[in-house]
Design a protein around this nucleic acid. Structure first.
Lengths: 149, 149
DNA sequence: CCCACTTGCTTGACAGCCTCAAGCTTCTAC
DNA sequence: GTAGAAGCTTGAGGCTGTCAAGCAAGTGGG
């Protein structure tokens, strides 16, 4: 497959891609720092963040795009701190549903609140600019999340 | 500096932050997948990507925001594959400058070229939209990268 | 019913990432 | 010089990630 008929000059995207990379790196650092302040690793915080709603181990592994055995370890460590609980599923006794405890939810709220760099950066934009960015990212999202082989 | 006089309702940013998070996650996955196709871990690819220009171990550790001892291991593994070389510095004999080999540079170019999901996603935007996104991210960048304690 | 098969979760082995503390060599400044 | 700082490496130890193997529990065909 050749590139789209009138593909944008690849050159045109280079700077943009670099900007996306830089933004994402900064965002990740902000997230990791906030998690660390609560004594969580990025992977633990990511798992906890996914548990706004309860979820089986399997579903969590799919969401985090990693092996189920990896999730076992992460949830073990969260559970040993009472941030999360494993509940047997009623219908299928193989399944364990993971639920955030009240303490886990509070921790997650604190982490979100402590991502001050991202917040502050977004606040340097005008309201209109934020709206535009929102629109653009929303348009970008589906294609970004589409999963190739 | 306090936030702008009429700071945006925090509510206004919630969706935007979630979009940034989603975009960042997708971008990182694209990067990690492309690196994996070349047999590199994300950390190795990140280091290699930083070596467009040669750099001391110390400088690399600062750039990657991690401990110098960590960089030793990463560079060890890259060097054992001839993607990178340590060169003694002429002026300061404590320093080792890390240089990407030709093979290393080629590998990095292939990784960048294989980040097809990100490329394809950006191509769903019109030329004008890409320009706007570029402007917005460029404006966002300095505040995103500013390092708080 | 029973068998084979699949699915959900856990365990163990092993590699890589990451940090800290300790150590070596080489500057740098007094 | 000599003390201290700076650059790099090593070793210990925890976390993340993958794979292979195993157990328990659901599923479907004969």
């Amino acid at each position: 497959m050749t590139p789209t008929p009138q593909a944008p000059a690849p050159q045109a995207n280079l700077e943009l891609i670099e900007l996306v990379a830089a933004t994402m790196t900064a965002y990740y650092r902000d997230f990791a720092d906030a998690a660390a302040r609560e004594g969580l690793t990025p992977a633990q915080a990511k798992a906890l963040a996914s548990l706004r709603t309860p979820m089986s181990m399997r579903a969590l592994a799919d969401r985090l795009l990693c092996d189920a055995s990896n999730v076992t370890g992460i949830i073990d460590r969260l559970e040993s701190r009472d941030l999360v609980r494993r509940q047997p599923d009623e219908k299928d006794r193989r399944v364990k549903n993971v639920v955030a405890t009240e303490s886990g939810s509070q921790t997650m709220r604190r982490i979100r609140a402590q991502m001050t760099t991202t917040q502050a950066a977004l606040d340097t934009l005008t309201e209109e600019e934020r709206a535009t960015l929102n629109t653009l990212l929303a348009k970008l999202r589906p294609a970004m999340e589409c999963r190739l082989p």
